[in-house]
Computed example of a mutant assay.
Amino acid sequence: MKQHTVIDSPYGPLTLVATDGALSGLYMVGQRHRPPEEGFGERDDTPFGETTDQLKAYFAGELKAFDLPLRLAGTPFQRTVWEQLQKIPYGETRSYGELAAALGNPKASRAVGLANGKNPVGIIVPCHRVVGADGSLTGYGGGLDRKQRLLHFERGAALF
């Protein structure tokens, strides 16, 4: 069973989706790879109390790591990449190549990038912490402006 709600954030409205009570989606307005809304299930705030509380604490600068049950639909490789993303510490970044090497396949940086782009739970599974080999900001499903703002926020810079 799927349910969804929409919450406000400093980065615009966030659509939260739950599958059988576990968070399965966090989507921003205009996000690339955003599924059609008819697949989000009925609108119901019930399963999102803890997710909303943790997101509020994160945006207030009080939470550095999320602890939520997730139900992420993807290929085994995608799920492995998403697990690796959750190991990137708050305020730090990794390159696609570094993630590929951590997965034991240093030549898989392109595949890591594709899996990163399909992450269904942005912010909580911090795909915004992945940058190009030279440290440059590269693609982000929520838009490069949001990626830059999230990274500045995590590094202690004021939101703009």
Rank of each mutant, 00 (worst) to 15 (best):
P10Y: 08
G12W: 07
L14T: 00
L16K: 01
L16T: 03
V17K: 03
V17G: 05
V17Y: 03
G21Q: 08
S24V: 04
Q31S: 15
Q31N: 11
R32H: 08
G39T: 13
G41N: 02
G41S: 03
D44N: 09
D44C: 03
G49D: 10
T51F: 02
L55R: 02
A57L: 10
K64I: 00
F66C: 01
D67I: 01
P69T: 03
P69L: 05
P69K: 05
L72C: 12
G74F: 01
T75E: 15
P76R: 04
Q78M: 02
T80L: 14
T80H: 08
Q86Y: 00
I88D: 08
P89E: 07
Y96W: 10
L103D: 14
L103P: 07
A111H: 13
V112T: 09
A115L: 05
A115T: 11
A115G: 14
G117T: 14
G117C: 11
K118L: 12
P120C: 13
I123V: 10
P126D: 09
V130I: 09
V131W: 06
G135Y: 01
G141E: 06
G142Y: 04
G143S: 10
L144H: 08
Q148I: 05
R155A: 15
G156Y: 08
G156T: 05
A157K: 14
L159M: 14
